[in-house]
Design a protein around this nucleic acid. Structure first.
Lengths: 210, 210
DNA sequence: ATACCAAATGACCAAGTTGGTCAAGATTAT
DNA sequence: ATAATCTTGACCAACTTGGTCATTTGGTAT
């Protein structure tokens, strides 16, 4: 990929990321067809000519972004300790990783969500090979090694996991606004996560857990 | 309102709702500015001339929809029994009401969500007077008369309520796809709700509740 | 200073879409 | 048959679209 887009990758990283984020944002918000290259260059603060110098056309830019985002996410996800057996510790690790990605590419996940719903004929066939599994691999990515025996016996585990997921999702969305408001937000954001995990651990685990 | 839009309200109800739903959909998906009146008339299967006969211009149509949707939702919400003190029974009642609205105007809530994020200068000032409270009044609409003493003493009630809300929200979204797939779906959809409510009741309430 | 070159620019293009109009045709009521 | 009302879609000027390319820019080597 780097070889193909050598012109683009020899840019200063700051400029490169400005372009990536501008394009991700526009495609995420408007879908492939309605996304405007004019808007992208305006947001990225580069000229129209430059964009079409780095990428031959809109389609190429779009498919590059898809490849790139999947690669970046894969790469950072590899850092998670998949041997941790406690679901809440695992979830917190995943949350941290997602936060890292979000800080660098705020629209990456929205872009992927939009890709999953995309139906522009010009890119639909190319998208398919990526597969919905990878796209949806936010939280669903394997519960391998999770110790489910910690859960109470009188509740459905799959449904309980759904509750946990929806809670994380909902809380993350609520926090996003706050994160966006402040310039440089550190990991203190995660303190409140523990409150929610504590509640759920206390309620969903057998008494005297771990 | 009915007086102002008399031309529109003297249409056959079926046609009227077709237009409303087409417009809600287009505005919900694209926001005020990018929404296309051409798309609306195509989806509603009426002519361009008719639309601009019922409404003088795009802005008038948009503001009408906002008024109308708020009114419809208010009206149906009035049916809820606000004396019920059990939070899960209350939530189920609200869920039923929302389901009713959804069946008639599938894009109504998405439209309101889009309105809340709208920032087109042409309509922004007119929106403000509606106020975000009304817009966000999905589940947040008052926990009056709810008996919070049923909850365990060792968990934060506000956060627990958030968990309940996010669960309902997440489950509703998951179900929406299924609902859309079948032509006429009855209330059997709500059976699975009880499973989730049972889990949460068992976990969040004091033991031996009611 | 000069010559050179890659990178960046934005005016420009044809093609298409926009919100909105209105004369002409279709329907209904009298 | 006449009048009154609805509905239609071709049409409009204004604007946006993805993409091009002659020109300018800024840096480097001489």
């Amino acid at each position: 990929m780097i070889i193909i887009y050598s012109k683009f990758f020899s840019l200063e990283p700051e400029k490169r990321e400005r372009i990536i984020n501008a394009a991700l944002k526009e495609f995420a918000r408007n879908g492939y067809e309605k996304a405007s290259t004019n808007e992208i260059v305006k947001e990225a603060e580069i000229s129209k000519g430059s964009l079409f110098n780095y990428f031959n056309n809109k389609k190429e830019l779009y498919l590059f972004l898809l490849d790139y985002v999947v690669e970046v996410i894969d790469q950072i996800y590899a850092e998670v300790d998949w041997n941790e057996t406690d679901i809440f510790k695992r979830m917190k690790a995943i949350g941290l990783v997602k936060f890292k990605i979000y800080k660098k590419f705020p629209e990456a996940f929205n872009f992927l969500k939009a890709v999953a719903h995309e139906d522009a004929t010009e890119v639909k066939s190319e998208i398919k090979e990526i597969g919905e599994q990878i796209i949806a691999s936010g939280f669903e990515r394997g519960y391998q090694n999770i110790d489910f025996t910690k859960f109470r016996d009188d509740i459905d585990i799959q449904k309980t996991i759904n509750i946990i997921n929806w809670t994380i999702l909902g809380f993350a969305e609520q926090q996003r606004d706050e994160v966006d408001s402040f310039e440089d937000v550190g990991l203190e954001v995660f303190d409140e996560w523990d409150d929610y995990f504590d509640i759920m651990k206390r309620c969903f685990y057998k008494e005297e857990g771990e």
